[in-house]
Design a protein around this nucleic acid. Sequence first.
DNA 1: CTAGACCTTGAACCCCGGTATAAGGTCAAG
DNA 2: CTTGACCTTATACCGGGGTTCAAGGTCTAG
Lengths: 133, 133
Amino acid sequence: MRIGDVASAVGLSTQTIRFYERRGLLPKPHRDPNGYRTYDPAILARLQFIRNGQGAGLTLLEVAAILELRGEGTSPCTHVRELLSTKLEDVRARQSELVALEAELESLISRSQRLDPADCTDVAVCHIIAPRR
Amino acid sequence: MRIGDVASAVGLSTQTIRFYERRGLLPKPHRDPNGYRTYDPAILARLQFIRNGQGAGLTLLEVAAILELRGEGTSPCTHVRELLSTKLEDVRARQSELVALEAELESLISRSQRLDPADCTDVAVCHIIAPRR
DNA sequence: CTAGACCTTGAACCCCGGTATAAGGTCAAG
DNA sequence: CTTGACCTTATACCGGGGTTCAAGGTCTAG
C-alpha cells in the first residue's frame, strides 16, 4: 500500500501519516526505488490503536511508547512498567475528573430547566452558569 | 480598580486579563488620563462567570459567545442549555474512551509482568526509552 | 508528449490558553 | 531625584497536534 491508500483507509491525510512517522509513532516504511513509502496492511491496526489512545487523552509520545511494548513484546523494562503504571494512574484520575464534571453539567442542566430566564441579571450574565454551591 | 487589583481579587495574572480582553471576553475598559485601565467592580462577576464556564468545560470561545448574546440583550439560556448538553455528551463519550484505555493499559502492564524483567537491566537496551530509531 | 494524480521534502502556519520578554511611561515615598 | 511598584504596548514563545505551502519528482492513460 502506498501512503495515499493507507490515508484513505483510515481517514487521515497523507501529511498526518508522515507527521506520525516523524514523531516516531510509525516505523520507517520500505521505500520503492522511486522513494515512495510502501506499507504493509498491518499499519492500519497500528493507526487504529493510535486513534484509540489519542482519543482517550494520551499524547502521541505516550502512544508511541506503548506501541513499542505492544508490538515488540520484548525488553519488559521496569522503566516501561513504571511509565504504563503512571499513565494508568493518570487515566484513572482523569476518569474521576470527568465523573465530577459530568455531575456538574447534569446539575447545571437540571437547574436550567427549573429557572426562569427572566431571572438572569446583567451582572451574573446567566443564572445557569453560577458558582458552585 | 486598576488591572492589578482586579487580578489579585480573582487570582489571575494581569497578562491573563489583558489576554481575555483581546479575546473579546471582557469589554474595553475605561482608561485613566495616563492610559491605565480602570475597572468597575462588576468586572469581578464577569471574570467569575468566565471561570465557572471554564470549570464546566467550556472553551473561552464558547464563554465569549454566551457573553456576547447577553450583551446583545438576548437571554442566552437556551443556547447555554444546548451547549451544556453537548458538553455532557462529550464528557460521557470521553469517559468510555478512558475505560477502554484503562483496560488496555492494565493488559499491557500485566503482560509486561509475565515477561522476564532480568532481560532489561541495561538502560541502553530499553528501546522504548531510547532515541528515535 | 502531455495532463493529472500521485509521491517527495522542508518550512511556515494555525488553534488553544495562556506565559515571558523587552522597552518604555507613571507615580508616590524617601 | 532616584527607587521601586505599578502600568502600557508589541512580540515571541510553549506544547500538543496537526495543516498548508512551495517546489519539485514519478507514473499512467490517452
